[in-house]
Amino acid sequence: MDRATELVPLHYVSLGAKGPEDVISDPQGRVLTGVADGRILRLHHPGDPRTARVEVLAETGGRPLGLELLPDGDLLVCDAERGLLRVSTAGDGAVRVLADSVAGEPLRFCSNAVALPDGSVYATVSSRRHPLDRWIADIVEHTGTGRLLRLGPDGGEPEVLLEGMQFANGLAASADGSFLVIAETGSCRLTRYGLSGPGAGRAEPFADLPGMPDNLWRAGPDGPIWVALASPRVPPLGLLHRTPPGVRRAAARAAVHAPYRPSGTTGVVAVDDRGRTVHRLTRRRSRFRMVTSVCVTGDHLVLGSLWERGVAVCALPADG
C-alpha cells in the first residue's frame, strides 16, 4: 500500500503527566502506559472523554518505556534506568527486577519487550552509548549499538542475541511465533529475527518504512502489527549517516544542545507477517506530536507520545 489515508483524530485525554511513551490495551479495553515520573497508569474508557479516568497502578522508581501484558495480568516493563521489570497490577503495585545487567554491564535504555508462550522474554536495548535523555544523539551519531536480548523461562542474566542495530526499539512476534519483528528507528526499517526453522538466529530486512518506527503493538495472531512513526524520514539525516564517525559525533553533541520540536506530521502503519503494509495513516499539521506508540481498543486507535502529556484517540480504519 503506497497511498496514505487520513488519520482522523477524535479527542485527547490528558494524563496529567508527560510522556506516555508506550500504550497497550488490555482485554477490558483499558489502556496502560508509563510516564516520565515513573508511574504506570491505567486509563479507563479511553473512547469516551466524558467518562475517561486515570488510575495509578505502580511506581517503578525509574523511567518506564515499553510495556507487555502477561497472561496473568501483570506487566513486563522496560525501564530505561532500572532494566527489565515485572509489575503487579493486582492492587499492590509490587515491582520486581527481572534483569538489571547484561554481559557484565548495567542494563540501561531497555526499550521494548515481548513474552512468548514458553516463558521466554525478548527485549531490545536502544543504545549502549547514550541514555534516554540523549536519544537524539544516538539517532544523529548512528552508533549502531542497539541489541536484542533473551531472558530464559528460569530467569538469570539475559543472553545477547543480536548486536549492531540502529536504535533497536519496538518488538513484536509473528503469528506463529517463528520470528520476531524489531523496529530500528535509526534506519527507518523493520528487521526480522528468526527464532525457529531455516532462518533461526538470522536477522534480515522485513520492511522499509516512510518514517522512523518506534513501538510495535499486536492484539493477537489474527491482527496486523501496528507501528508508530515518531518522525517522517529526514533526508539530511540520511546524508549525515554516510559521513565519517567523527563528523557524526560532533553533530550529535550539537543536536543535544539545540532546541528540538517534533514534526507536525503524525503517522502510523500496520504490516502483516510478510512485511506488507495493510494500513498507512498520516496527518499533517497535527497538534499531537511525536507518536511513539499505537494500540487498538474497541473501534479506536490510541496514540502515545514521548513528548505529550496525554494520549490521542483516533478513528480505526473500517477494516482495522
Rank of each mutant, 00 (worst) to 15 (best):
P235R: 09
F206K: 00
T297Q: 11
P20L: 03
G223H: 07
L116W: 06
Q166M: 14
R280L: 11
A113G: 03
W135M: 11
D26N: 12
P244L: 09
R30F: 12
A250Q: 13
R50T: 15
L76I: 07
G170C: 10
R108F: 01
T60D: 10
G144D: 08
S101Y: 06
A94S: 12
L107I: 00
L237C: 08
S25N: 02
Y122L: 05
L67V: 03
G93D: 06
V256K: 04
R129N: 13
D72H: 07
E21V: 06
K18D: 10
E81L: 15
G104N: 02
V278Q: 08
L15Q: 09
R202Q: 13
P106L: 09
V256I: 14
V313N: 09
E81V: 15
S14C: 11
L161T: 08
G34C: 10
D272A: 01
G29F: 08
R253P: 07
V23L: 04
S127K: 02
T143V: 14
V160I: 12
E159L: 06
H44L: 14
V102M: 09
R284C: 11
F179W: 06
T191A: 10
E141N: 12
P71M: 05
R63N: 11
R50A: 15
L43F: 05
G144R: 03
R134S: 13
I182D: 02
D48G: 05
P117K: 07
L190P: 03
D100N: 12
G170V: 08
Q166H: 15
G246T: 10
G16N: 02
G267H: 04
V87D: 00
D208N: 07
L75N: 00
A173L: 12
V97M: 06
A168F: 03
A312R: 15
G223E: 13
G61E: 11
G211C: 02
P210C: 08
L7I: 10
P205T: 06
E159N: 06
D133E: 15
V268P: 01
T124R: 03
A94E: 12
L162R: 12
I182R: 07
P213G: 05
G83P: 00
G220P: 01
E21L: 04
T292K: 03
R192F: 01
R53C: 14
G104F: 01
F109Q: 11
P9Q: 10
L7S: 10
S174G: 13
L237I: 08
R86Y: 03
L32W: 06
G298Y: 05
Y12K: 04
V56I: 14
P9D: 13
A103C: 06
L43I: 14
V181R: 02
D48M: 04
A270Q: 04
T51K: 14
G186A: 01
R283H: 02
R50E: 15
G29C: 06
D208H: 11
V54M: 09
T51S: 15
L85N: 09
V278T: 14
C78Q: 01
K18L: 12
R192H: 01
I136A: 12
G220W: 02
R285D: 15
P221I: 05
F206D: 00
V268W: 03
L70G: 01
R248G: 04
E308K: 11
L84V: 07
E81T: 14
R134I: 06
P71H: 02
F167H: 11
S305R: 01
R128I: 01
V97Q: 02
C295W: 00
